[in-house]
Design a protein around this nucleic acid. Structure first.
Length: 490
RNA sequence: GCCGCUAUGGUGCAACGGUUAGCACGUAGCCCUUUCAAGGCUAAAAUACGGGUUCGAUUCCCGUUAGCGGUACCA
């Protein structure tokens, strides 16, 4: 539908335009991802623009976090970051141009006349009501002719403003519903005008940067007619808009802190794999077709289309995100997973350089491969899997209670240590047979001994299959740990 | 309040006038098994409500309800 109505240009130009008033929110991240997917899919250009025109709310230090979040997600850009705070002259010039061509006017009304509004009683209590749509200043009749004016857009009386939305289709809004919005704030002491307002700066920048497709959150849908009006006043062609549905919390209200983490960087810290997060995010409000779920980024790129974007807000489902993570943890080619694990072990101080190359690397690879079906998040490699990478692990009380309760256990463990120490070859088969022989001789089921040994050599009730674990740990270490664990029974 | 968007199992998506309404997450059970996962199989679970249009509506139209968004000299 989209492709027919508005053919995809060969080289679309899109932008992600976050505002540094907060961290990179998952909603913003999803918008960034869709822009990126679209740009890469159609060999276009991705532009990053920082919308920091509100000096009072901006926190410049947040920009770093936003950029880091994007990089972690794998969303890169070709141009920028551009900062709107450094482009103020452009907006002022444009506003003055509109003043000159009669599509804007000077407004002397005090700001508070517009802020807050009236209150009306409704069934659900007082609701805010917009007080002013058409300002009297537009006809040259300022209510308070003195003081510094702001510049407002002169919205046409009557008529409709239309635009094409690649996900919602043709849209039209009645001009009478659109207020005479502010383009430029009134100036403080010394300056003629203040900073540009959002509508002004986006449109001027989108025109200046030759943006062809504006992909953004659906919360901007009712801003769009204002912007289209601005394009017209500026004699510019509006881009194709694509509004993507919002992300909600489990209770269907707008996603916020009380729903859990909303900062993308928190997920990085928690130890999610970026590709898993990306896959999950991509499937929030979009689907490639019928039943595909687990998608590598290349497949995402191959299949992404604005047509598939849903019209409904989506709930952020954390359990599903975790499922994606375990899927990637298990299915990623091992060479792709290794660097992530290495970084994790470095963070926790368990990393040894000998694992970087040669035989050490081979061992590391084998160990990670053994561990990964049971790992849920990257830090599990340092915590749950600690006994595989370090010798100073502790014994879980619950594991001891569960698997060491048979009085025969200490003796059997001692005999197992002797049997294993005597093995000429150290492999799965040999460990298996030696262990079962000890169990049989001791008159117990193999399972009892196997479970007891597991606790002795890794300190926990849960670990990969025992004999694989033994092979990876090595003969010397297994025997030593078995003997050392005997002290726990004293 | 006004304007706008939306409405398929608990969740994310399919079905774009004709299907026993499909897939995935989650949930429950079973199998596998040496712990825990993974994996395999099975089950419960949905077209918000009311009107139209049509031979036939999940699908098109209208209304209601609900949720969300906008209604700032915020972005």
């Amino acid at each position: 539908m989209t492709d027919k109505a508005h053919p995809i240009p060969n080289q679309p130009r899109v932008r992600f335009a976050p505002s540094p008033t907060g961290y990179l929110h998952v909603g913003g991240a999803r918008t960034a991802l869709f822009n990126w997917l679209f740009a890469r899919r159609y060999h276009g250009t991705m532009i990053l623009r920082i919308e920091d025109t509100d000096a009072e709310r901006n926190k410049p230090e947040l920009v770093t976090g936003i950029l880091e979040g994007l990089k972690w997600l794998g969303v890169d850009w070709d141009e920028g970051p551009f900062y709107q705070s450094q482009r103020t002259q452009l907006y002022k010039d444009s506003a003055k141009k509109l003043l000159a061509n009669g599509t804007a006017f000077l407004c002397y009304c005090p700001p508070e006349k517009y802020v807050g509004g009236d209150h009306a009683e409704t069934d659900s209590g007082p609701a805010q009501v917009r007080r002013i749509v058409r300002c009297s200043c537009r006809d040259g009749k300022p209510s308070t002719p003195d003081g510094k004016p702001a510049i407002r857009f002169k919205v046409p009386i009557g008529g409709k403003t239309k635009f094409f939305d690649a996900v919602f289709g043709e849209r039209e809004f009645s001009n009478d519903e659109i207020e005479d919005f502010v383009l430029l704030r009134s100036g403080k002491d010394g300056e003629d005008f203040g900073q540009a307002m959002y509508q002004m700066s986006v449109v001027v920048d989108d025109v200046d940067m030759c943006i062809t497709h504006v992909i953004r959150g659906a919360d901007h849908i009712s801003n769009t007619p204002k912007q289209v009006l601005l394009y017209q006043a500026l004699a510019a062609t509006p881009p194709v808009f694509a509004h993507v549905p919002l992300i909600l919390g489990a209770d269907k209200s707008r996603l916020s802190k009380r729903h859990g983490a909303t900062d993308v960087n928190m997920y990085r810290t928690e130890g999610f794999l970026p590709e898993a997060f990306r896959n999950f995010l991509a499937l929030l409000g979009w689907a490639p077709g019928h039943d595909e779920q687990f998608l590598r980024t290349a497949e995402l790129l191959e299949k992404f289309s604005l047509d598939g974007v849903s019209h409904t807000n989506a709930v952020f489902d954390r359990p599903k995100l975790e499922w994606f993570n375990t899927q990637f943890l298990q299915k990623l080619p091992i060479e792709e997973l290794l660097p992530e694990v290495e970084a994790e072990l470095k963070r926790s101080g368990l990393w040894k350089e000998e694992w970087a190359t040669g035989a050490g690397h081979e061992w590391f690879s084998k160990t990670v491969d053994l561990l990964r079906p049971r790992v849920r998040l990257l830090p599990d490699f340092s915590t749950w899997s600690r006994a595989f990478f370090a010798d100073d692990f502790s014994y879980e009380q619950a594991a001891k209670d569960k698997f060491w309760k048979d009085p025969k256990v200490p003796e059997l463990l001692g005999k197992t240590a002797d049997a294993l120490a005597a093995l000429p070859d150290w492999n799965h088969y040999a460990c298996d047979h030696a262990t079962r022989a000890v169990a049989e001789a001791g008159g117990v089921k193999a399972g009892l001994l196997i479970n007891a040994i597991r606790v002795s050599i890794v300190g926990q009730a849960v670990a990969p299959p025992l004999f694989d674990t033994m092979v990876v740990l090595g003969q010397e270490r297994v025997v030593r740990r078995l003997r050392a664990s005997l002290k726990e029974f004293a």
